[in-house]
């Protein structure tokens, strides 16, 4: 029996393959975009407040900075203490249209040695961890290999 794919956070991303996107919200009054999504009230202090509509974020952006996690993070990050720790890279990505920086893990296999500030990356669906019942999905950044 195949296990259920469950997003690690509901309604933060959607789709698969080339259709995978992060989901934010946009204020109908001032057009400000929010990620993580704001669903109650626009946070622009100069805005009277409008309806917040779900909006996909740009799939591609540029590396603003990057680092990695050489030691096992504490709970609630889920790891198998039986297995040796495998470091992963974290990438902060600047989305040019939204003029914002969004943090995420790099796809498995991409290390800090493969990254440079300014490099183009795209968002893809990835697996955060798996347990007996579920495959927990998340977003990850993958270098496009294209020169910006």
């Amino acid at each position: 029996m195949s296990r259920t794919h469950t997003p690690v956070v509901e309604q933060w991303f959607t789709g698969d393959g080339d259709g995978f996107t992060l989901l934010g919200t946009r204020c109908a009054a001032c057009a400000s975009v929010f990620f993580p999504r704001e669903d109650s009230h626009c946070r622009n202090p100069g805005c009277p407040g409008g309806d917040l509509e779900e909006v996909p974020l740009s799939r591609r952006g540029r590396v603003w900075s990057y680092t990695d996690s050489r030691y096992r993070p504490p709970s609630p990050y889920v790891t198998d203490p039986e297995l040796p720790w495998q470091p992963y890279a974290l990438i902060a990505v600047e989305l040019l249209n939204e003029r914002m920086v969004v943090l995420g893990q790099a796809v498995p296999g991409v290390t800090v040695a493969d990254l440079a500030v300014g490099m183009e990356v795209e968002v893809v669906r990835g697996v955060l961890h798996e347990d007996a019942e579920r495959v927990w999905t998340t977003w990850q950044w993958r270098p496009t290999g294209e020169t910006v």
Binding site: V9, P36, T67, P74, V78, L90
Partner: peptide, 20 residues
């Protein structure tokens, strides 16, 4: 959330600022 989703400890943020 930053721990659950990203495992982003405090030092990873310091690493991002340093690399920048």
């Amino acid at each position: 959330l930053r721990f659950r989703v990203l495992g982003a400890t405090n030092p990873t943020y310091f690493g991002l600022y340093a690399r920048r």
